[in-house]
Amino acid sequence: MNWWDDALHRATAEVLLAGALAGLVGVHVVLRRLSFFTMALTHATFPGVVAASIIGVNIVVGGVVAGAIVALGVAALSRHRSQNTAAATGVMLSGGFALGAGLVATQNGFSRDLTSFLVGSILTVSPQDLVTTAVALVVVAAVLLACARPLRYTGFDRVGAQAAGFATGVWDVVLLLAIQVAVVTIVPAIGTILALALIVAPAAAARQWSHRLSVITALAVTFGALGGLGGLYASSRWDVAAGASITLTATAVLALSTVLSRLVRSRPTAAARPQALAA
């Protein structure tokens, strides 16, 4: 029997890939304080996914289109100083969710779909889902790596980055689209709530351990993948919903990191070492 034929094997692979992808974009979500935007994205891409499945096109395409509209909308709204972007994001979230839920409700057997939208159905992940996630992982990693410098400059010092000639608006859109691609890819497999947890918690945990972006990113990817594996194991061990147990595992990683990193830091640290620069 092929290794990939086992649902649990596929779930394991998906959880590793999704955890890595989530950790990768999660670092930026946490640093730029985009958690609410991410939450809104998970809900606002929902009507796109539903509409795509009703029309019969690839649901990832539907999600990407809806997500891109939302990401561009947020970027446009956040350029307006007077706009309360938190409220605008909230409006998008509730509007998108209501539209998606309304669309689902017109179909038969909708409560199962809705539930899997919220908490995912990682145990029914298909080989094609795996390929999609892997491709998204490669694309997002490449984009984030290639754009590391402008993204760092814009995140740290917006006005300075503009003054140095970076089109900060463009870089915002690049970042939002990268997050959007990650969200759209992982939500169908693991659900909205889990997607948010996997994006935010491992990155927030990694943030506790280092002040270097490269280290934080590596840690976030590791924590994301480990949290996924641990949660999957707990789920099969105690027979609870996989999505929920992965979320709780990721939360536990964060709680542990917060406590342990404080303990480690409270010890006297060595004075600043002679430098070797990196960029």
Binding site: P150, R152, Y153, F156, V159, G160, A163, I216, A279
Partner: peptide
């Protein structure tokens, strides 16, 4: 250009060396 320091995100994980390197970007 040297901006006012309070317009920055001081929490952002960058080292002083990396900030100066931004000048070379």
């Amino acid at each position: 250009y040297v901006p006012q320091t309070d317009s920055l995100d001081a929490d952002f994980p960058v080292t002083a060396g990396q900030v100066v390197m931004m000048g070379r970007y």
